[in-house]
Amino acid sequence: MKIKQLSVFVENRAGRLADVATRLGEARINIRALSVADTADFGILRLIVDDVDRARQLLAEAGYTVTLTDVLAIQVADQPGGLAAVLRALEEAGLNVEYLYAFVPRTAGQAVVVFRFDDPERAVAVFSQLDLQAIPAEQLLRL
């Protein structure tokens, strides 16, 4: 159920994001979702890609500091209150969200929210109790 997200350390200066994107593009690696956490000096680029192992190797060889992080993705209704319902349930279950980001896939009516929990194992257990369906990696890449 867990998905491997690629996390990349990037300095906060011109051209760094473009450089990462260009390298992935030239290697025909597709980005399905991304977010950037930024501070004054640096950013952390978080990517869901269609070939995470190759992307990791490619960026590491280019000198980037990269790591793989376990995240969970779930579908929520693409309508007002869709995300709120899920977040309330997670909160009641006592799950800590470190960060999240979302994208709207081509499939109509659904949005995908990518979660990083401080305890991914417990999150998986809570998901099944809550009847939330974590999207497997293969399925996510097809959305």
């Binding site: 997200q5 350390f9 501070t39 978080r46 590491a60 500091t65 790591t67 470190e98």
Partner: peptide, 15 residues
């Protein structure tokens, strides 16, 4: 330099 050993993908860890 942020090496793989000290890198975390969470801002609060790096901060």
């Amino acid at each position: 330099e942020v090496s793989p050993e000290i890198f975390s993908d969470e801002v609060k860890q790096l901060e």
